[in-house]
Each structure stands twice: as structure tokens, then as C-alpha cells.
Amino acid sequence: MKHDSAHHFQEPILKYARTDFARLPVHFTVQEALNAIRQQGIGEKIVYFYVVAEDDRLVGVVPTRRLLTAPLEEKLQNIMITRMVVIPHTATVLEACEQFILHKFLAFPVVDERRRIVGMVDVQLFTGEIFDFTEREQAEDVFEMLGFRLNQVRDATPLRAFRYRFPWLMPTVLSGTLCALLAGAYELTLARSILLAFFLTLVLALGESVSIQSMTLAIQTLRATRPTWAWFGKALRREMTTALLLGLGCGILVSLIVWLWRGVLPAALVIGGSISLSLTGACFVGLGIPTLLHALRWDPKVAAGPLTLALADIFTLLCYFNLAALFL
């Protein structure tokens, strides 16, 4: 049975929090802390000890190495770290994952609204129970990006596999045919500047790469976020700005290559400009197609890949040939 990943990552973090950790009073010395640890016992692979005030409020954390190497008469309040990153007890699994990614710590305390420690999550739990879940879906995600589900073709007969896989190749065939017709329509433009043909594959590849990157980011976000117009506008502004920077960088680089290789400045500017414009459009396609399919209640992972690549190729060629026709 396939897991609902969006539901999984929205589960409360308290479901995964551990309670086998030692609370150490802030007025303890290192010797008293070690004695308390022996009496309380600790769980496996504990790397941090949490220091609490009289009202059980978390006030610091002491790494194991620091506790073991400090003088026995030293107070915990003198060796503890007071600037801590904590996870609120209302956090979701996804929000906790973000903390591990951002801060690279081995464990985080979970605290309530009064900053009392109610649990602890460590990286072992995430790698053992949560990231394994993601890894189990990665293989299927790759196939779904291509247009079909892995469970449809696993152990299927060649004929059945053909029936599932062939329809999703049709967008590629149709878009490829349309691209060929577009190239034929601009045959005179290509004849005026043979350089356009040399860099056609590069321009298409860049557009496809950016569209797939944007599509992947959109699908991953849609798995854990309910899309709204506000979300789409914010994501679109961020992605379009990124795509514009990528387009300018790639466009300038390719323009320099064309100019240094052939010394034809107009063609170099047209090729570079079309790259800048097409990458921005490809970004919009990569973000918009999964969002639209999600709004229509279709599975964006299955349908987005072929459609995104097809539309990105068509838009890229339109930019490429129209700019060439105007300026060459």
C-alpha cells in the first residue's frame, strides 16, 4: 500500500520524539550531573544533555564531550550552551526535517509553549524512520516523472509495459514533430545563419534542464503544501528571478563562446538573448504545469514530466527562431 507522503510529513513531531534523555538541574556540578546520569540512565547514542531550571524550563545544553572533559567541580551553568535551536511541540515532521537540514545538529529538544522540554528527536530516528520512507518513494518518483507508475510496469509482460509506457511518449513525439515543423518554417532564417543550427541542441537542452528543475521543486512542494494563489505568486516570483539570473549567466557565456569562435556578434547576441528569454519561459512552464494539474486533481508526478518537456521545447524554439528572424 502506497504511503501518502504529504500526510506523513504533516504528522506531529511528538509522535517521533524520544523521552529517554536526562534532565540536569542548572545548579548541578559536573560530578553531580554524572552521578545523576548513572542513576537516571540514558538512551542509546545520546550526544547532548539538557539543563533545566527549577520550573523545568530548558536553559541550556551540554554536549557529551564537554561534560566528560570539564572539571568535576565546575557548575553546569558555566559550561552549558545557552543559544539553542529548539523544535516547538506543535511542529510537524516536515518542519523538524528542515531544522536538521539547516543546522546540521545531531539532535534537537522539543519544547512546549513554556519552553519546558517534552521530548527529543535525533538524527538516527530521521534516517531510520523518515528518510527511509523518502528513499522508498524515490525510485517510483523517477518513473512517475517520466509518465508512468513503477507498480504498473514492475513484473509486467512486454505488451502490458508497452501499453502503459507508449501513451506517455506521445507528447514527446508530437512536440518533436511540431519542433521540426517550426524549424522548417524558419528554414530561410537558418540558411542565413548556419550558426543557429550549431547551437540549437544546446538551447533546447538548457530550456529542458531549467523546466525540469522548476517542475521538481514544484512537485516536492505540492506534496506537503496546499497551493493557493498567494503561494503560486510567491513561488513564481522566486523561480522567475532565479531563472532570469540563470538565463543571463548562460546567455552571456554562450554569447562569448559564439563570438570568440566565429566572431559574428549579431548571431552571438541573438543566441544569448534567446537563451535568457527561453529559460525564463521554461521556468514558468515547469512551475505552472504541476500546479495546474494539481488544481485539476490529476497526479502532477505522472503527467507533468512529458507535458513540461514538450511545452518547454516549443517555447524555446519559438523564442530562438523569432529572435533570429527579427535581428539576423
Rank of each mutant, 00 (worst) to 15 (best):
Y164D: 08
A139G: 11
V153R: 01
F143C: 06
F148S: 00
T127D: 12
P158W: 03
L125S: 04
F166P: 03
F131M: 11
T172P: 00
A139D: 10
Q152T: 04
G128V: 02
T157N: 11
T157V: 09
R149A: 06
R160Q: 14
F126G: 00
F162E: 08
W168G: 03
T172H: 08
Q138T: 14
T127R: 14
E140H: 08
D155N: 05
A161G: 02
R149P: 01
F148G: 02
P171W: 00
D132C: 03
F126W: 07
A161P: 00
T172V: 10
F166Q: 06
L159F: 14
F143T: 10
V173D: 06
V142Y: 15
F143I: 03
E144C: 04
N151Q: 12
T172A: 13
D155S: 06
L150N: 07
V142I: 15
P171E: 02
T127E: 14
M145Q: 02
V142F: 15
F162Q: 06
A139E: 11
V153E: 00
M170F: 08
F162Y: 10
E129H: 10
E129P: 00
Q138D: 13
R149F: 00
A156T: 09
A156N: 05
V142M: 15
T157Y: 06
L159Y: 07
R154D: 12
D155Q: 02
R149C: 00
R160T: 13
L159K: 09
E129S: 06
V173P: 03
W168T: 05
R163M: 07
E140D: 10
F133Y: 14
V173A: 11
R136Y: 09
E140S: 13
F162M: 12
T134Q: 11
R163Q: 12
R149D: 07
F133L: 14
L169M: 11
P171T: 00
Q138I: 09
L146G: 14
P167T: 08
F126Q: 04
F162T: 12
R163N: 03
F162I: 10
L125M: 11
L159R: 08
I130R: 01
G128I: 02
F126A: 04
F131V: 12
M145Y: 03
E144V: 02
Q152P: 03
T134Y: 15
W168V: 05
G128K: 07
F143W: 08
R154I: 14
R154A: 15
F166K: 04
V142A: 15
